[in-house]
Design a protein around this nucleic acid. Structure first.
Lengths: 115, 115
DNA sequence: CTAGGACCTGACGTCAACGTAAGGTTCAAG
DNA sequence: CTTGAACCTTACGTTGACGTCAGGTCCTAG
């Protein structure tokens, strides 16, 4: 599959895909003319990246996580990193929950205030 | 209270505080020498900003939200914006929950894989 | 009244995740 | 064999939330 199809099917831009490759988190073969050739798994992988990005992880973190995703974490280093990242995610969820509650307060107040 | 104390008590940099003022989300009086003078509320306000930032809101959004926080939302425009932002927060929480679940899978796999 | 810490205003630097433009190549269709 | 879409590399532009440096002012303790 060429880059344009991956882009369409995963919902990101061609530029983004080349960027992912540049960051070492997405790989591809090259056809005879030098064009990238992706396998089927690329689409799912890119969707996974989108989830990670949406969760606030950077390309750097994703690059660190990928070996764990693919091979199951091995080194103590990697396990510790997983736990650290998990804690960060939980923190972010807590922050969002707090903001969500505040938003709900605001929306309630706004409803009360309706003319 | 001067800017340095606000910075210490709220845990952000002096530069950040001046940036917030520049963005119109934090106000202050000026003393005779031209130095900023903040009231007590500034510290809490800045902490609120930190929560909003952590939730992925931009200064622009915060600027739009502030009138609602202070006066209770009024215009239909503002109410709609609140609802839109709430939806975004929920989306982000969902994304984070998904990633959290995946992290837990990874951590479990890593534990199984422990030597 | 003087030292030095806190403060001031520009203004340029940074980093991530791409966007975008330039200039050239490859591929699929007719 | 030509055309036009899709692809390539290189490289500069963008946005947000500050960091950092320069060069000058203010405030407070001794």
């Amino acid at each position: 599959m060429r880059i344009g199809e991956v882009a369409r099917r995963s919902g990101v831009s061609v530029r983004a895909l080349r960027y992912y490759e540049e960051q070492g988190i997405l790989s591809s073969e090259r056809g005879p003319g030098g064009q990238r050739e992706f396998d089927e798994g690329a689409v799912d992988r890119v969707r996974l990246f989108q989830q990670f990005y949406a969760a606030g992880l950077s390309s750097r973190r994703i690059a660190e996580l990928l070996p764990c995703v693919e091979t199951g974490a091995t080194s103590a280093e990697q396990r510790a990193m997983l736990v650290r990242e998990r804690a960060r995610i939980v923190e972010r969820i807590d922050a969002l929950d707090t903001v969500l509650a505040r938003m709900d307060d605001l929306i309630l107040a706004a409803a009360d205030h309706t003319d």
